[in-house]
Amino acid sequence: MWKYSDRVIDHYENPRNVGVVENANATGEVGSIVCGDALRLTLKIEDGIIKEARFKTFGCGSAIAAASALTEMIKGKRLEEAAKITNKNIVDYLGGLPQAKMHCSVMGQEALEAAILDYRGEKFDHKVEDEGEIICKCFGVTDQKIRRVALENNLHTVEEITDYTKAGGGCGSCLYRIEEIIDELWEEQAQKNNAGGKMTPVQKMKKIEAVIEEEIRPLLRRDGGDIELIDVKDNQVVVRLMGMCAGCHAAVLTLKGLVEEKLRELVDPDLEVVQDGLH
């Protein structure tokens, strides 16, 4: 049995705003019976304000609760304000949802988007925002949607993606594709904010090279020595000390105290520096 918050149970047992708004001027329909959830949201919008909001849903307890919560949240709001509501706002309003039920909140957000588009005379099509290739054929989830939801909710595993979007929850044949998509996504993100994020091996290598070139070599050269980068294996940096440094009694000190410390400070605190031929 799912562990639902009291708020979810309350909205499930006493759903607010059930039904269809008479003379609605905005309708959003998302989901399908194949997926196991479907939501119809109808709105009455006047002077840019949502005067009335009602829903009908085919779905589980949390789908009913999320739809009920959504109608409460948007009633009386200006359209621009309501349009900013995300699935996370719905989850917060409900005092949390079980991980596997996050997609219920996503469905609420989508129904609202669809209704607003309808009001503006545009056609909601799942792919208006989430274009791209359909990855999960069972639930019609595109790669764009997977990327968007993963980014918005900081999702890193396939299980989380299934919880939030249902993708991969049907026949399961797309699970490996979802994994590829999120790996790719987070790799891109890491590249974007190189400083904070995780580096790829190539990025790391380049950065080590640069630090040696710009920071370490000048120091060693001052003492008549030099350094050459031989290899980087995971977190192990293999270098060769040359010139004066090569025969220096303090070579180990130089290696650990200077080279390693600099690299740890400027590249990655997990790096270890070893002398070529000594490891």
């Binding site: 799912w2 499930y12 085919f58 779905g59 589980c60 307890g61 789908a63 009913i64």
Partner: peptide, 8 residues
């Protein structure tokens, strides 16, 4: 109707 809602 949906089964989970019914079970609840």
């Amino acid at each position: 109707i949906e089964g989970e809602a019914l079970l609840l």
